[in-house]
Structure formats: structure tokens, C-alpha cells
Amino acid sequence: MKLTSEEVNDIALESRLLLTEQELAGAVRYINNFLDMLDRFKELDLQNVEPFSFAEALECPLREDKVNDFSNIQAIFDESEHVDGQFFKVPRIMEE
């Protein structure tokens, strides 16, 4: 089923993207062609196939619970234009 431009625009907004008319038209074509390509999956019986998550039976390594604070916090602050004293600031959010 083809996605309409309205649906694609909704998805874009969900991703915090405002599209120009031209971008939207491109995105609609792109998504629909892409979904067409993915329709091939329907030819396969995937019922009993495990989803792949990692290349091999890899185990999550675990880090020791030992404090090692980052030494260059100032460099992080320096990269933001939204610093106010010790805080980062954003436009006011009304509390829900």
C-alpha cells in the first residue's frame, strides 16, 4: 500500500523534520519505492527464523563500577550555545 504525502509528512514531523514541498515529493517517491523493494521479504518464510542481533554469540562485556569522571567537561560546555552558568538551557517547557 502506497503512503500518501500526508502520511509521509506525519512521519517526518515525528522525526522533527519540516520538509519543503519538493523534499516531501522526493521523500514520498523514495519511501514508496523503498517499501516496494522490501516487499520481497514476503516471499520468504520467516516464521521460525530468529532475529539477528549480533554477528556471533557475543556477550555483553561488563564494566567495573569504578568512578572515572571525564576530565574535560569544559570542552563539552564550550560546544554548546545554550549554556547558562552550570546549566544547559532550552526554550521553556510547560510542565504537563
Binding site: 547558562d84 552558568g85 552550570q86 546549566f87 544547559f88 538551557k89 532550552v90 526554550p91 521553556r92 517547557i93
Partner: peptide
């Protein structure tokens, strides 16, 4: 950040 509650145009993180 200075403790003013009302009227602040920003939220702090």
C-alpha cells in the same frame, strides 16, 4: 537558574 520561578523563558537541564 537564579531561582526565579515564574516568567522564565527557559527550562534548565
Amino acid at each position: 537558574s537564579d531561582g526565579r520561578l515564574e516568567g522564565a523563558a527557559t527550562s534548565y537541564v
